Computed example of a mutant assay.
Amino acid sequence: MSVKTKSPARVPLLEEERMHSARVFAGYQHATWEMHHIPWEEFRSDLVLPEHIVFVKGAIVGESNVIAATHGLLNEFDTDYDFSQFACIWGYQEIQHHLAFQTWLQLAGNSIEHSTIASMREAYPPGVTRAATLATNVICEVLATHAYKCVSRSMQEPVLAEILKKVSGDEARHAREFVHYTAQQLSEKPEECASVLETLYIYMGTSRDLYRHPVSRFKGNLPELENHESIDEMFAYFAEVDEGGTEWAKCCEQLFRYFSTLTGYQLTKMSEVRRAIAEESLRGMASV
């Protein structure tokens, strides 16, 4: 005799045009993962290399920045309920990344001092504009997406490889939503376009910024991180395993596509970003 199982109820989509975060929440519940989805029992200590430990410690320091970042976003967007709700959803997922990496590190027989993680707590000050803050997060998420994806392909230890693939997928989804909110901000405040272009140039405009993350700019010199792994070590390992710079090139191409869509300028190289900044500056002067 067969037993019929009850199908899960279909959740109605909340029809509230001012609450994009509600649709994000519904979508993330289908696409996201939980800690018990990681095959922890498949951990292979014999496949853990010293450089994996350094990479994961750097990832933990980077991901533990989420509390400060969420705090900063909630402060800066204190009048925007929809985005603030998204920031909470985003923050929850980033916390999971941090804890997944810490759990793996423990399995590998290592740990990080709590004081090191706690040093990342200080909130960020408001950005030059709201659009610039959002654009910075677009860059952060795209860089993380490609770093984790690239390292996952080279990773032999199966548990860490699985964590990296799942985290990379999360970061890609986060990037798309930060693009959405940046576009929304620019539609309301088009005069902030110059700050978005400047943000791209500041973080991606010179060769010294290859394989570097914005968090490094803000918190790379914390006294608590002296002689300790940071997000710089995480990205240094990304550079080591990125044969021929293929993944970094894809990362830059994606950023140019996103920022072209956001600003209305055709951007494929940094000289075009500089030109667009100059045009926005002239436009701003003409409107005064």
Score class of each variant (00 low, 15 high):
L222T: 04
A22F: 08
K57F: 08
F101R: 01
A87M: 07
I89F: 13
A278D: 10
A22M: 04
C193W: 03
L160F: 05
A144T: 14
M155A: 04
F25W: 11
M155Y: 01
D46P: 05
T32G: 12
G284W: 08
K4H: 11
L13F: 05
A135V: 00
R10V: 15
F256I: 02
Y28V: 07
L143S: 08
T133A: 10
T268C: 00
L210E: 15
T70G: 09
Y211V: 06
A249R: 13
D82F: 06
E240R: 15
Q254D: 07
V128M: 04
E198F: 05
L13H: 11
E171V: 04
Y201I: 02
D170N: 12
A132G: 11
I95S: 13
I89L: 15
P126D: 07
P50A: 13
Y148D: 08
R283Q: 09
G220I: 05
E122H: 09
S216V: 02
R173S: 07
M204D: 03
E63C: 11
H20R: 13
T116Y: 03
S119F: 06
F83K: 07
L186M: 10
Y237M: 11
D46T: 12
E34I: 14
A9Q: 13
Q29A: 14
L47P: 07
I53T: 14
A26Y: 09
Y92L: 14
A31G: 11
H20L: 12
E63K: 14
V24A: 12
E226Q: 09
I38C: 10
Q254K: 07
R274L: 09
I139A: 06
I95C: 10
R173L: 12
W90H: 11
Y181E: 06
L105Q: 02
D80K: 10
T5F: 09
E198Q: 15
N227Y: 12
Q96L: 15
A183D: 08
S152I: 03
F238Y: 15
L73V: 11
A132Y: 01
V138A: 03
Y258M: 02
